[in-house]
Deep mutational scan, measured.
Amino acid sequence: GKELVLALYDYQEKSPREVTMKKGDILTLLNSTNKDWWKVEVKATANDKTYERQGFVPAAYVKKL
């Protein structure tokens, strides 16, 4: 199945390749080969529509579930 990670801290994206997350968010882990930056998929809701974004977050800010 898919691997999930838990956001340990809030993170505000600093570039278009990154994604914003809030502490407590559960994210889908896409790639953890880089030890510093993990690629995740974030589900977000805006205007009653759910959309998914993929991007990088600092590996130290998340932990595998």
Results as ranks from 00 to 15, higher is better:
P16D: 10
A60S: 13
E52C: 15
E3T: 13
K22D: 03
L4K: 09
P16G: 09
K49A: 12
Q12A: 11
K23R: 09
V40K: 00
V40M: 01
D10P: 05
Y61V: 05
F56D: 03
S15I: 04
I26E: 03
T28L: 14
G24W: 06
K23S: 07
V5F: 05
V5A: 09
A7G: 03
K2G: 11
E41S: 14
E13D: 04
K35E: 10
L6D: 00
K43H: 14
W38G: 01
Q54N: 07
N34T: 06
P16Y: 09
S32P: 05
D10Q: 03
T28P: 15
L4F: 15
K2S: 09
D48C: 14
A46H: 14
N34A: 08
K22F: 08
K64E: 07
E52G: 14
V19Q: 01
K49D: 10
S32A: 11
A7E: 00
N34M: 08
D36N: 12
Y51T: 13
L4N: 06
E13G: 15
L65A: 05
R17I: 12
D36S: 09
K49I: 14
E3H: 11
A44P: 08
N31A: 09
L30V: 12
M21I: 15
V42W: 07
G1F: 12
L30T: 04
P58S: 03
T45I: 15
K14A: 09
F56M: 07
D10A: 06
L6T: 07
M21E: 00
E13V: 06
D36A: 08
Q54M: 08
T50F: 11
G55R: 01
K22G: 04
V62W: 00
D25P: 00
W38C: 05
E52Y: 15
E18R: 04
K23Y: 04
T50I: 14
Y9P: 00
Y61L: 12
D36Y: 15
S15D: 10
E18S: 05
N31K: 06
T20L: 02
E13A: 15
K35S: 12
K49H: 11
E13S: 15
E52H: 15
I26A: 02
G24E: 02
N34Q: 08
Y11S: 01
L8D: 04
